[in-house]
Amino acid sequence: MGRLAATFDYESLRNARISENQARLVSLGVQGKISELRAKASPAKPVETSVKKSCKKVYDRSSLRRSDRLKGKSGEVLFNSDSLRYSERLRARSVNPLKLNRRRVLGNGDGEEEANTPANAPRLKVDTTELRPSPEVLSRRCDSKGRGSVYDPIFGICCHFCRQKKLCGEEDCKRCGDLDMDEPCLGKTDCSVCHSSNGVLCRACLKVRYGEEMEEVRENKEWMCPHCQEEKGINPYWICNSSLCLKKRKMVPTGIAIFKAREAGYKSVAHLLMDKLQKAANHRKY
């Protein structure tokens, strides 16, 4: 009861104070000004934005830009050599001897390529006197016997596995030491069957990737590359394990797998891969 009485007294006092304040404002004449200020302070009505009507664009029906081929003028273009953008090589305006260094010499001048030319002895058709490396560079050639220490894009022979065009590190190699183009490279192999670049391997890649020695390959005049061995079925599951050949087989390249192969007791990476392929084939049979 006490709380209700206190509330009633507060409300009555509040209403009486409000009435007193309003009467005072009227007596001062500021009631109208307050209403004007409230009207000005009220938010204005938002302006209605006009909605743009989409109109369909009418395209010009003039003739379209067609190529000369679709216009039926292909014959004129093809026979007009000036209208086509050909390279300097196709226009035969300039011949760079560096781009012709891999062409083999034609035998006997009869227009036919020399038969069974070793892949480890490609003959150059350019004047090599101006392109020879300096004696200082050739002196560092035998610092590394495995692959050679001198990279030469002109005289170097590309290895199928490491793809390094290096002069070999064999001391008695006339091809890389004296740059005698009539001699084969002693530091690169050559397949007796295909005589192609697939059978060109340097000493290091031949040893690490296939477990063969260069001296044994030189003595064996009937040595065949892994590609030819697989094609003839001489050694089952013996394949080339270069990254290029493995990607063609849709297989993951082995990378540096020689340490793993030797830890497992294999002679080379090719022996490790051959064993894996044989086990996989036997597993599919059963």
Rank of each mutant, 00 (worst) to 15 (best):
I258T: 09
C162R: 12
N96T: 09
W238Q: 01
C55H: 07
C159M: 06
R141T: 07
C240I: 08
N241C: 04
G29N: 11
P97E: 07
K73F: 04
N80K: 04
P184L: 02
T128Q: 07
L206Y: 03
L106D: 05
E216I: 11
A39L: 04
C173V: 10
C158G: 01
S87A: 07
P122S: 08
Y286P: 10
L246M: 15
H195C: 01
R91V: 03
L179M: 05
A281F: 11
N96V: 04
K232R: 15
M181E: 09
D82Y: 09
N15I: 10
S139W: 06
S192Y: 15
Y59I: 07
K260H: 02
V126A: 11
G111T: 09
E20Q: 09
K250V: 08
F8V: 10
K207Q: 12
A39R: 14
R163C: 06
M181L: 12
K57I: 15
Q278V: 09
C168I: 02
G2V: 08
P43D: 05
G156S: 13
H271N: 11
L131P: 05
L273F: 09
R66M: 10
H283R: 10
K125E: 14
R102C: 04
E213V: 05
C142R: 10
E222I: 06
F155H: 11
D60F: 01
I258S: 05
K40A: 14
S134D: 15
R61T: 12
Y151W: 05
I154G: 00
E76S: 04
Y266A: 02
L90M: 06
